[in-house]
Amino acid sequence: MTNIPFVILDVFATGKYTGNQLAVCWGAENLTDLQMQQIAREINFSETTFVTDTEPVNGGYNTRIFTPMTELPFAGHPTLGTAFAIQQQILKQQVERVNLNYQVGQIPVDLNYVDGNLDILWMHQQQPKFYDSLAEEIFADVIGVNPTDIDSGYPIEPVSTGLPFIIIPLKTLAAVGTAKLNLELYARVVADLPAQAILIFCPETVDPQRQLHVRVFTECFGIPEDPATGSANGCLAAYLAKHQYCGSPNVNITVEQGMEMGRSSLLYLRADHTPDLCPVSIGGRVIKIATGEFIL
């Protein structure tokens, strides 16, 4: 078996060494599930992706996503980063769209260029699914905030646009910044819920040019906190549109994430909620950091 090339990227980056780290491997069609999991554990980023066909299948590239502990059916920053890597390392020419084939179905990514260089990439997520709202009091204890820190004007609600997250609205930057999972209580509370990962947000921001400040806790995937989460922010975009948090069912905002981790991240959120549909798109920039290969 030949060695497996890979590229390391920063996704949803505001500059080099910001955003969420990602390793993308290609030429991985002969790797076993165990080998993919071992490579993901060796890299030890929140996710590592494997392009298992370097030619399109049904118009898209078969791709698998692994955390250090498990395989995921979909994730956001791996989608943008993998589309970037396919354009840069496999296609090596300008294309307007790259489709990725996942367990959840095909996810399209639109590529925009400025002076011939890739700029913002946009992924179009699945139609959102909304679940029953959850009790405020218990989740205040789960995330370690006072009940009065939760914005009771909006529900605590699980949402999925391919991967489910519990969305919790808070009032202040201080509350978001001090939140910390009570792991024992968290494990009991989320055990039977349709979502276990948690996104908290507030309208106060560190950067006045952004509209929301976000943190995402993904303990259920073996990652205590994620610095930039496209799948979670897709759920957030759908939530904001449904509940008209921004004043209308149309969302077009920028979100900051990862600052508490020293990994400043910038995500662009778009959504339009109607009684029948709610298209969701999440955008961001990708920066190449390093290339190499795994010796097999």
Rank of each mutant, 00 (worst) to 15 (best):
H124N: 14
V189H: 10
C25Y: 08
Q37L: 08
C220P: 00
V11G: 13
P224D: 09
T2V: 12
H273M: 12
D226C: 06
T32L: 02
E42V: 00
Y131I: 09
E157D: 01
Q125N: 14
T172N: 09
D110R: 08
Q35V: 01
N252L: 07
T229A: 07
N112G: 06
L236P: 09
A187H: 13
T79D: 05
G247C: 09
L296V: 12
N250V: 15
V206G: 00
A195F: 10
R215L: 12
E137D: 15
A83V: 01
K288N: 09
H213L: 06
N117M: 10
Y268M: 03
G230R: 04
G177C: 04
D207R: 14
E256P: 11
T148G: 12
Y113F: 14
I138P: 02
A40E: 02
Q103I: 13
D119Y: 02
I120W: 00
P108N: 06
M259T: 07
A135L: 10
P68H: 07
V176W: 08
V214G: 03
E47D: 11
S248K: 11
L9K: 06
Y61D: 06
T18L: 04
Q37D: 04
P249E: 08
Y131C: 04
V176H: 01
R285M: 12
C235E: 04
Y186Q: 08
P73I: 08
R188Y: 12
F6L: 06
Q126Y: 09
Y102R: 00
